[in-house]
Amino acid sequence: MASNTTIIFVPGAWHPASCWDKVAKHLEQAGFNTDLVDLPSVGPPEHLKGFEPDVEEVRRHVIAAGDAGQKVVLVCHSYGGLPTTQSVEGLDLKTRQTRGQPGGIVHLVYCCSFVIPEGESLIGAFGGNDLPWFIISDDKMQYFPNGPETVFYNDMSEEDAKSATAMLKPHSYQTAHSRLTYAGWKHVPSTYIYCLKDNAIPIVVQKMMVEQTAKGYGVRTETLDASHSPFWSMPKETAEAIQRAAES
């Protein structure tokens, strides 16, 4: 039953949790509970030295839903896939139930996100090189996207893209160098939402992560004819893909 499931949304770098609002509302109308995570690495007073605070914040939301007896579907976008993947350790439904805890994670949904193995980082996934559209501070502690209207929002109107860009905040750059020690997609059923018009993580890279990195782990796939930000340009279709994952 949808009422027994909480869908928790994790944004990517630079983005507030509210970017998921439209998708969450569609799923609430379908009877699901929803929860949005604001990552500590987005616009902090002092930039983080690693992604651990992000991991702990995701875990805090999962534990709260699990302790309430809810099945949890974790939905992550872009960079958010790293702390989400790491956060799964020990919080899947089967493991928690063996400890007498009523709820836990039952499914992961990666929306044009990073699926990488243990020992790897976001920067490592790009061969150890910064992307050309990264604007990195001199102290290597924060970064910001150059031209987000083209990189993230290329299927949106100029007005909507400007509105979305205005919501972005500087992100803690060192989180991009944090290495996974736990690959949650190996232990929990997962779905990947391909975004065909993505200029940030091109579709060829998305498919490589699913078909090569996660080969043999039975990752379901959904496909949207969307940019890197389907939560704004295609919220209804994104919600429907997430609902199918939750019900799979």
Rank of each mutant, 00 (worst) to 15 (best):
G69Q: 01
K25N: 03
R179L: 13
G80P: 02
A65C: 12
V58A: 12
K197S: 05
A166Y: 01
N199T: 04
P83R: 05
P145A: 06
S229E: 10
R96L: 00
G184W: 08
G184R: 10
T213F: 05
H15D: 00
L196Q: 14
T6M: 04
G128F: 04
E159F: 05
R220K: 14
E211V: 00
M208Q: 12
V10Q: 00
E56F: 09
G147E: 10
G119C: 01
D67H: 01
M1H: 10
K140E: 15
E211T: 11
E89F: 12
Q206D: 05
F152W: 01
G50D: 15
V188S: 03
F144W: 13
H61W: 00
G124R: 09
T85S: 15
I123T: 15
M234A: 04
V204D: 14
K236H: 05
P117H: 09
T238A: 05
V42A: 13
M1L: 09
P235L: 09
M234S: 04
V62K: 01
E120R: 13
S190T: 12
G69I: 00
F126S: 04
Y182E: 13
H61I: 02
A166N: 09
Y217F: 15
I8P: 07
V23A: 05
M141D: 14
N199E: 13
L180E: 06
P53Q: 01
D35E: 15
S190Q: 10
Y194A: 02
S227W: 07
G50Q: 09
A17T: 01
I193C: 08
M209K: 04
T213W: 01
N154G: 06
A183Q: 13
D160P: 07
